[in-house]
């Protein structure tokens, strides 16, 4: 598009001794420019992924990585018929702990991203208003984003502490609760704690992306609506929201992909709680802690498959143009 004149190869270098056309020369250079990156990505992404998938079809263990034998789908699903006629199903797909993790992950992703999208939008609307100290406020909301996840997990873990936590203390003083609650340890509130910390940490990201979208809306649209006397809430739903929708959708899909693979926050904030174990947590446990390397590989392969299907479905539905339209 923009560099059309370069790309149709008509404008050759004045040193015509070279028999290659300019375009051919450029493509050749591009190949060498791209090669190191492609090799690197193959080594750290494609190859390990293929090996993980391979491991998931073997009985490899952590201590003997090269002695695994091919066992087909045994790690995923297999059954054995006992002499009594009873059939026993084994493998990840018949493992209630796995389905619990799947459910936790999906529930966490759906709830956290929904809350973050709404709150992020609200904060963005607030920052889109011109007021004194707006720059300071924007800087302040960047702080949760800048704090390492592990640190925020520890900070909140301390604030949510059942005995000495400030949150129990404050809620008791206000009178919202009448006894101290073990927020992170109790099965009923563990997921809520994780959600609170995640929302606190990632709403800034959402808000900034929404704000970028809001700032691209021309001001005269609002003025026209104001002149017509349209109610602000109606303006938001009829004008603002449709216009920021593309930016919002991209932010949402990025956040969903991020939420589906959540690991560190849960590992630190609610270790070993059945209520918050996600797919990443359970896979890593099996891979490196329970010496079920191949079984863990099968679980991480499944997580990869779920994310891949999600992305493929999203692209197929044509909701976002991630590749950039100016390719054509």
């Amino acid at each position: 598009m923009s560099n059309f004149s370069l790309e149709n190869g008509t404008k050759r270098s004045h040193k015509t001794s070279n028999s290659l056309s300019l375009q051919q020369q450029r493509v050749r250079a591009a190949f060498w420019f791209l090669a190191p990156m492609i090799v690197m990505l193959f080594c750290v992404a494609a190859w390990p992924l293929l090996r993980t998938i391979y491991f998931s079809f073997t009985d490899t263990s952590l201590t003997s990585l090269y002695e695994g034998e091919w066992v087909w789908f045994k790690n995923y699903l297999s059954y054995r018929e006992l002499s009594s006629g009873r059939v026993i199903w084994r493998g990840t797909l018949a493992d209630p702990a796995w389905w619990n993790a799947v459910w936790n992950t999906v529930r966490f992703s759906f709830v956290s991203v929904s809350i973050e999208a709404v709150l992020g939008m609200l904060v963005a609307l607030m920052l889109n208003v011109e007021f004194k100290g707006r720059g300071l406020v924007r800087a302040a909301i960047l702080i949760p984003w800048a704090i390492p996840t592990i640190v925020s997990a520890k900070m909140w873990g301390w604030m949510l502490n059942d005995q000495f936590g400030i949150i129990n203390d404050a809620l008791l003083k206000i009178g919202l609760i009448d006894h101290k609650i073990a927020w992170t340890a109790s099965i009923d509130t563990a997921m809520m704690s994780v959600l609170v910390v995640d929302v606190w940490k990632t709403t800034p990201f959402m808000a900034l992306l929404c704000l970028a979208g809001l700032q691209m809306i021309p001001k005269d649209v609002y003025e026209a609506a104001k002149v017509d006397g349209v109610h602000p809430i109606k303006v938001f739903f009829k004008v603002t929201l449709p216009l920021v929708r593309p930016a919002l959708m991209v932010a949402v899909i990025f956040r969903i992909l991020d939420a589906l693979r959540i690991f560190d926050l849960i590992y630190v904030l609610t270790p070993n709680s059945k209520a918050t174990k996600t797919m990443s947590i359970i896979s890593r446990e099996n891979l490196f802690e329970f010496d079920k390397f191949a079984y863990g590989s099968a679980q991480s392969t499944l997580l990869f498959a779920i994310i891949a299907i999600f992305v493929a479905a999203y692209i197929w539905l044509g909701k976002v143009d991630l590749g950039g339209k100016d390719e054509q």
Partner: peptide, 17 residues
């Protein structure tokens, strides 16, 4: 696509590498 990879999916293969 690679940037959206779940890190856990390459963990076993990377460990071997």
């Amino acid at each position: 696509g690679v940037s959206m990879f779940p890190q856990i999916a390459v963990l076993a293969g990377l460990f071997e590498l």
